[in-house]
Design a protein around this nucleic acid. Sequence first.
DNA 1: TCAAAAGTGTTAAAAATACACCCATGG
DNA 2: CCATGGGTGTATTTTTAACACTTTTGA
Lengths: 232, 232
Amino acid sequence: MKKNKYCYEYPRPSVVVDCVVFGLDDDLLKVLLIRRDRDPFAGRWALPGGFVDMDEPLESAALRELKEETGVGDLFLEQLYTFGDPHRDPRGRVISVAYYALVKLSDHKPVAADDARDAEWVDVKQATKLAFDHDTVLKTALDRLRAKVRYQPIGFELLPAKFTLTQLQSLYETILGQPIDKRNFRRKILAMSLLTELPETQQQVAHRAARLYRFDRQRYRQLVKAGFNFEV
Amino acid sequence: MKKNKYCYEYPRPSVVVDCVVFGLDDDLLKVLLIRRDRDPFAGRWALPGGFVDMDEPLESAALRELKEETGVGDLFLEQLYTFGDPHRDPRGRVISVAYYALVKLSDHKPVAADDARDAEWVDVKQATKLAFDHDTVLKTALDRLRAKVRYQPIGFELLPAKFTLTQLQSLYETILGQPIDKRNFRRKILAMSLLTELPETQQQVAHRAARLYRFDRQRYRQLVKAGFNFEV
DNA sequence: TCAAAAGTGTTAAAAATACACCCATGG
DNA sequence: CCATGGGTGTATTTTTAACACTTTTGA
């Protein structure tokens, strides 16, 4: 039963957060979507999201929704854009503060059936005809990811803690959508001295096992202070 | 008299837009501020802004506020960030969608006393101790401007339609806060073939009159389509 | 004739690009 | 022994950086 006990002198919009969560599944960039079970847009895929509580910072709201709806825990999270078209939600004025997140899918793969919600990792190329203006939100997030991955070391957020140089290169090729020269790439990345070479190699591969590396976040912070600019 | 006739089942935040308007006054980067005449923060400088109407897109709200409060008309306007700390306004939950704008101060100089409001162009270096979280908003806008001016030709929005290469160079030096080599700068900029050389020179200067140029927006769009990337 | 800013080339160093073969491993 | 991906170096081109003097103009 509705009480409608919150009254104001002027009308107010609702405010929600919506999250574009990216994960890398081999050579596919995927996004976490939720099947809507009620109108509007019942049956359509939508970005996970929900209302912002009155005493809650926006980013906390995004984190809470992610945890509630998807079980996703530690991740890279950044505000994307605020979508406020008066007609973006047919039910009324709903302003959406969108965030995008990067998760290590290797750790979070079995998310799908966690909650009662029907959540699924969908190839970004297949993720169209989403509910509300979520096509636009997703496109904005993709543009941002493609731009940012070139000048900030956020790509590592999509990889497991230990990774091979080929995995890293493949990540950039997938996100940027263009091939990269292997030798030049390795030289450039290693020259930044941001990667720690581990005394381990891949296991159980049917070819020469590749060396594993770890991204050294602390070193990155040091270098940035000294004026270093990451660039791929 | 308050009527409080807008009632909802759950509490809702207020949503405002705030604008960081930059203008270039010779070698000073200035920001448009408004002196608050009422609490909270009475007497303090604040960014121009105001409530978003229920049927109004966010960007329209920003444009409207700018026109109402400052008389500023055509300008570059872009969404900056949404600030939503629950305590950023002592009166209650107010979510601020911030925009930043670039105006040709040469055209808009006499804004100050336009409206009844006490608006003023303030050197960004002097613009501290602002109301609410506006120090943070201003810093975010400055960071964005400094980053974006390097890879998008938005600096021209701060100059008159006709300008000299020295004015352009000085703009970059002011915003980036570092000196630039004159010969290298001119070669690089002219090589982009984004500037139209005009058959005019400066007038009434006590030294050799410099050639005037105009930014060719159409040409820029063509080049971008062909894969060109602006960079200073 | 002086002060003030406009305008103009070259050289050296660094960075980016293009490119092909041998190696180690498990099946 | 073969299929698969791992790993490595050099030469060329392009881009960036450093640097100083002559010209024009109005006061």
